[in-house]
Simulated assay, not measured.
Amino acid sequence: MAATDLLVIIVAVIFSRLLAIYFPGSLINTTTGCRLIILLVYASRNCSVWLTVAFTFDRFITICYQKLRTEYCTEKVASFIIAIVCVLCCSVNIPFYFIYEPLYTIDSVGWYCNIKEIFYTSVVWRLLETLDRIQTPCLPFVLILLLNALTVRHIIVAGRSRRRLRSHSNENNQRDTEMESRRKSIILLFAISGSFLLLWLTYIVYFLLVKISGARFLIGSNLNDPKFILQESGYMLQLLSSCTNTCIYAVTQTKFRGQLKDAFNYLSKLVTKCHKQ
């Protein structure tokens, strides 16, 4: 997850946005380079989203199905699922490489990317675009929401049973670390679902507006155009969504916070030592 999220930032932010804007004559701005960058953006974004779904499913199995956990939650199975997800996400986005043509041509070299007219008129391309929006982000969000809801339901039911058992024992006045851990799991699951929904909401709203009104996606439009601002805001929040889940999962882990604290303590001691010297 961290690797694919980092790849999204490198490809979609650094290469597609920053380098393309501030180095206009570079190889990235040729039509071939532009196509490759867009393909990598689609693939890395989908990998990031679907690995989040896979990780959510892994947590669902871990918490709700203790017996299945020993067989499913293994390094071998995780590696296999990661490979399958990455291969599929790259494969399904290959057709989008061919929807772009040169914006203009200089000395037989195509520069920048412009969406072909057939993309807006062909039934096949419209179907592919709709399927792409369904598989990212609509279907992942439904799966994440469903899996998290089932996991929370299991935690709540198990918590009620645990409280009934503790009420008949002598452990009422003792700290229930298991229940505290389950409450943290609920907060984590809601944080994942909430951030995914909120950060993709603008993108989904703009896509629906385009589909309903029959408009086109804007490229290099007037920066003061409300539609262009909404479109770019949706893209920005969508890219931000690729970062938040890994951060949320990592920060909520006790071991991660402990190692992060140790790293800060080491740096502070090192700075203090250098200052004394």
Score class of each variant (00 low, 15 high):
A3D: 04
A3S: 05
I9Q: 14
V11P: 02
A12Y: 13
I14Q: 10
I14L: 11
F15P: 01
F15H: 03
F15M: 05
L19Y: 03
G25R: 07
T31L: 11
T32Y: 12
T32C: 03
R35K: 11
I38V: 01
Y42K: 06
W50F: 01
L51V: 04
V53M: 07
R59N: 05
I63M: 10
Y65H: 14
K67S: 14
L68S: 09
C73L: 03
A78C: 01
S79A: 12
I84C: 09
I84D: 03
C86Q: 02
V87G: 00
L88K: 00
N93K: 10
Y100D: 03
E101L: 01
T105C: 00
Y112C: 03
T121R: 13
V123M: 14
E129P: 02
L131D: 04
D132M: 15
R133D: 01
Q135H: 12
T136Y: 15
V142T: 11
L143A: 10
I144A: 11
L145S: 07
N148R: 04
L150T: 07
L150P: 04
T151P: 01
H154L: 02
V157H: 13
R160S: 11
S161T: 06
S161V: 07
R163S: 08
R164G: 05
N170V: 14
N172D: 06
D176H: 13
T177M: 04
E178C: 07
S181Y: 07
R182F: 15
K184A: 12
S185E: 15
L188R: 13
I192D: 06
F196V: 11
L197Y: 08
L198D: 09
L201V: 14
V205Q: 00
K211A: 14
G214H: 09
L218R: 07
S221V: 10
N222K: 12
N222F: 05
I229L: 06
E232N: 15
S233W: 13
S233N: 11
Y235I: 08
M236H: 08
T244V: 10
N245Q: 13
C247F: 15
I248A: 01
Q253R: 04
K255C: 09
F256T: 14
D262P: 03
Y266G: 05
S268M: 06
S268Q: 14
L270G: 12
V271Y: 12
K273Y: 01
H275F: 02
